[in-house]
Amino acid sequence: MTRVLVTGSAGFIGHALSRRLLGDGHAVTGFDAFSDYYDVGLKRARHAELAASPSFEAVEARLETPGALLDTVARTRPEIVVHLAAQAGVRYSIENPRSYVESNLVGTANLLEAVRAHPVRHLLLASTSSAYGGDAQSPSRETDRAVTPVSFYAATKLATEAMAHSYAHLFGVPTTALRFFTVYGPWGRPDMALFLFTKKILAGEPIEVFSGGSATRDFTYIDDLVEALIRVMDRIPAQPGAGAPVCAADTLSPVAPYRLVNVGGGRPVRLDRMIDTLEAALGRTAQRISLPLPPGDVSATRASTELLQALVGTVPETPIEVGLPAFVRWYRDFYGV
Rank of each mutant, 00 (worst) to 15 (best):
L282R: 11
R284S: 07
I230M: 13
Y258L: 06
G241Q: 11
F219W: 11
S299W: 05
N262C: 05
M274A: 15
T277R: 12
A244F: 01
A281M: 13
G241I: 09
E279M: 07
D218F: 12
V298A: 08
I289P: 03
P237Y: 00
L291M: 08
V298G: 11
A281Y: 04
V261H: 01
I230H: 14
A256I: 06
T277H: 04
D250H: 09
D276G: 06
R259S: 11
P240S: 05
P240H: 12
R284T: 08
E279T: 10
T220A: 11
D297V: 03
I222Q: 00
Q239I: 00
I236T: 07
R231L: 13
D297E: 12
A238M: 05
P268S: 13
Y221M: 12
P294L: 14
V298D: 03
I236D: 06
G264Y: 00
V246K: 04
R235C: 15
G266N: 06
A280W: 04
T220V: 05
G266S: 10
V255T: 14
E227H: 12
A248F: 00
I222F: 02
G241W: 03
P292M: 14
L293D: 04
D224P: 09
L252N: 06
V255W: 08
E227T: 13
M233S: 09
L271E: 09
P257G: 04
A242Y: 09
P294V: 03
L229D: 04
L282K: 08
L229T: 08
G296V: 05
A281T: 07
A281C: 13
P294C: 06
P245S: 12
A249P: 02
P237W: 06
I230N: 02
M274F: 13
P268C: 10
R273C: 01
M233V: 09
V269D: 04
D234Y: 10
L229S: 10
G296D: 07
T277E: 15
D223S: 14
G283R: 11
P294K: 10
R235P: 01
A280Q: 15
V269P: 00
D234V: 13
Y221N: 03
R259I: 08
T220I: 01
E227W: 07
G241N: 09
Q287S: 12
A286V: 03
P257Q: 04
V261W: 00
G243E: 08
G283K: 11
P240T: 02
A242M: 06
E227M: 10
R270H: 11
L291N: 05
I222D: 00
L293E: 03
L278M: 11
R270S: 12
G264F: 01
R235W: 06
D250Y: 01
T285Q: 15
S290Y: 13
D234M: 04
G283Y: 13
R284E: 15
M233D: 01
I275V: 12
V269F: 02
I289C: 02
M233K: 03
L260C: 00
D276Q: 13
Y221S: 03
R270E: 11
E227F: 08
R259F: 05
R270W: 09
V226G: 07
S253F: 07
